[in-house]
Simulated scan of single mutants.
Amino acid sequence: MSNDEQGKFDDLEKKIAGIDATIKAKEKVRSMYPEKKTEQQEQKTGELSVEERAFVDYLRGNATEERAENLTFTDNGAVIPNSIMNKIIEKVVDICPVYQMSDRYNVGGNISIPYYDEETSSITMAYADEFTELTSSSGSFKSIDLSGFLAGALTLVSKKLMNNSNFNVLQKVIEYMGKAIAKFVEHECLIGTADKADGMKGVKQVITAGAANAITADELIDVQEEVPDTYQGECIWIMNKDTRKAIRKLKDADGNYLLNRDVSAKWGYTLLGKDVYCSANMEKMEAGKDAIIYGDMSGLAVKVTEEASIEVLREKYATMHAVGVVAWMEIDTKVADVQKIAKLKMKAS
């Protein structure tokens, strides 16, 4: 470097060192004077701790009379406060990206989501002359109705494990229930169930593969192009692991693989520039099956009631030396914005 360049470099290095020193000083001051919680935050934390202790004590069978007051007892067991269920729902959001990215409604009862329908008619604009009547055109508003279908998940916790003081009962219950509910919720988001949640059944942008058990690069491009550019920013691919394995072998005209390993991708792979998520709930490449979903998952509306509850059944599974934990919730799913999502359907046999 020239003398001038060396001087500029030294100045920049001094500024960086100064910034680093300032950051360290602020962190030290922050550690010396921790931020105080508001009275409301402290009260909420205190209530949560009481409820969590009551939950763990009841699971272990040593709940005191005072802590038992935090539980609601029924003929079958105890209903645990919503704070525990909320932690389980948070776990579901963490491990279920489809649900995480969807348009979520955490309310009870039936709801109607309005959307603008341009399929039959739409608002248009055109040049016009003075004193000439404009020809009007307009779209129409429709709505998607979400109700609530009751679903439950049961997990058994070993009493032997719970009696081990090193076993984090609360964390394990949240983990077990979170995984069970996430698997169910993801299935209802992607596949749905007849006469219950629709899932992706409402997707209208459909590309049909030319074969019943194989996919081509051109078909993948066609699926991606179904979604307008304005919605491409948050799009992802969703498929079964076996489908991903088949796509990994596809190459473009120059011999480059379409699906690439990418350490910066959310799930380790990208396809045509978008992240690839594998779900065991997705159907495989079989005749007539929906093998791939592509799009912005905010186009899917999911309603999970905030009145979800969790019950502890201590007596029912006593002969198994276990405690049952049951989570109840209401759920419904439907495609709300058909422009945001497309899918690849395999050719019928």
Rank of each mutant, 00 (worst) to 15 (best):
K172D: 07
T132C: 06
N281F: 05
E226G: 03
F167M: 00
P97L: 01
A308V: 01
A211Y: 15
A318T: 12
S122N: 11
I111P: 03
A291L: 09
Y294F: 15
G199K: 02
K340S: 04
I181S: 02
A25I: 10
A182L: 08
K249M: 11
M346K: 07
T243R: 04
Y115E: 01
I144Y: 00
E186S: 12
A287I: 07
K340H: 01
Y176R: 04
V169H: 09
Y294R: 06
A17L: 08
K183D: 09
S83N: 11
L220K: 12
A63I: 15
G7C: 05
W328Y: 15
G210T: 15
I89L: 13
E330F: 15
L59C: 15
E226A: 14
Y231Q: 03
G210D: 13
G199L: 04
G7W: 10
D296K: 03
L258P: 11
D252P: 04
K289Q: 09
K334F: 03
I181G: 00
W328D: 02
R30G: 02
K245Y: 15
V325I: 14
N82G: 06
G233V: 12
V326S: 01
S147P: 03
F184C: 11
C189G: 00
E52V: 15
V79M: 14
E186Q: 11
G18A: 11
K303L: 08
G152N: 14
Y176L: 06
L146H: 02
V325N: 03
T305C: 09
P34G: 05
Y294C: 00
V157L: 14
G77V: 07
Y269I: 07
K183E: 06
M320A: 13
C278H: 02
G18K: 11
E311D: 05
A151P: 01
G324E: 04
E52T: 13
C235I: 01
A194S: 11
S31P: 01
T208A: 06
Y294G: 00
A197S: 15
S49Q: 15
T120W: 09
I293H: 10
A217E: 05
N164P: 08
K28I: 10
D242H: 12
T230P: 02
D145S: 12
Y317S: 03
K204Q: 08
V107L: 10
V93S: 00
S264Q: 12
K91W: 05
E119F: 09
Y294M: 03
Y317D: 01
L250H: 03
N213K: 14
S136I: 06
G148E: 11
S2R: 09
M285Q: 14
T193M: 07
K36A: 11
D103L: 12
S279Q: 03
P34I: 06
D218E: 15
G139V: 01
E225D: 12
Y33I: 14
P81C: 03
S2G: 05
R261V: 13
S349E: 14
K8V: 10
M32W: 07
S158T: 04
D198I: 05
L170A: 08
Y127N: 09
K142V: 00
V338Q: 01
I331Y: 04
I207F: 06
V276A: 02
I95T: 02
E47L: 13
E286M: 10
P228N: 00
V304K: 13
T72F: 13
E234L: 12
Y58G: 02
D218Y: 13
I89S: 04
I292S: 01
K251F: 03
